[in-house]
């Protein structure tokens, strides 16, 4: 019953977010601020992780290809497929659930604890629109982060595979272009948009409806991370079933 109630509350929250809009000029500033905090602020960690995970994927593939019949270009093919299809959109999103999601929950939760949300409501401001809508719009730029992640992942794979002496540069480039299906990129970005919405709204829900004090802010951040990750994984499964199988 609690889960059903939470789903209902979440849906009502989404309705509230798109209710009475905040003044345009204020909203514009909030959106740019959120883009800076949520998206631009995550570029460093995403770049670092993508480059090295891409490198490890290529390394592992190369080390496990002991059969001389299998072409070395498969290293690049396997790295490309795993990075574009799953690593960048899904696993980076789960990492973002920890970084961005916890930030959203704790910042909104702190505002709840210190009555800042009540202050907005008393002023006649739609607090859900003021707090959550800019985050949703800011997260629309999230696919750019994933595009960068894909590029750096492949670059990492190239660096480790070619500089490590496992594959020649030509073989890697050939493998990278082999059986390329454009629809896979569309699929990756389609699910990235869904994950962006999940990343903005589920942590916001946990922060907005939290009760208690600072200890509960911490607990809500943890719960928010767990649920955001679960929803991302389940959504990923459903979207993959619907689009690729």
């Amino acid at each position: 019953m609690n889960y059903l109630q939470s789903i209902g509350e979440y849906l009502l929250m989404i309705k509230g977010v798109f209710g009475r809009m905040t003044k345009g000029s204020v909203l514009k500033e909030l959106i740019f601020k959120e883009i800076d905090e949520l998206v631009v602020g995550s570029l460093g960690i995403v770049a670092f992780l993508s480059f090295f995970i891409g490198g490890v994927v290529a390394l592992q593939t190369a080390l496990n290809l002991s059969n001389p019949i299998i072409p070395k270009s498969l290293v690049a093919f396997a790295a490309r497929q795993s990075i574009i299809l799953e690593f960048s959109p899904t696993f980076i999103s789960i990492i973002m659930a920890g970084k961005v999601g916890s930030f959203i929950t704790s910042s909104i939760g702190s505002m709840r604890v210190t009555e800042q949300i009540d202050a907005l409501e008393v002023m006649g401001i739609n607090s859900l629109n003021y707090l959550v809508f800019p985050k949703i719009i800011a997260m629309l730029t999230y696919p750019f982060v994933i595009a960068i992640s894909m590029f750096l992942g492949v670059l990492g794979a190239y660096t480790s595979a070619v500089l490590g002496g496992f594959v020649s540069s030509e073989a890697f480039i050939t493998g990278l272009q082999e059986d390329f299906i454009g629809f896979h990129v569309f699929y990756a970005f389609f699910k990235t948009f869904l994950f962006a919405f999940i990343l903005a709204t589920i942590p916001a829900y946990h922060g907005y409806y939290m009760t208690g004090g600072s200890l509960e802010v911490g607990k809500s951040s943890t719960t928010s991370f767990v649920w955001t990750s679960v929803v991302i994984i389940v959504t990923n499964y459903i979207v993959t079933q619907l689009m690729l199988s």
Partner: peptide, 27 residues
């Protein structure tokens, strides 16, 4: 309506000036 909350309920992310200006900017 003006409201003074028990803890002040000032917006942490804004300066004093921005806090005070907030209702004017909104309305």
């Amino acid at each position: 309506v003006g409201m003074l909350f028990q803890g002040g309920a000032l917006f942490d992310s804004m300066t004093v000036e921005e806090n005070v200006m907030f209702p004017l900017r909104m309305f």
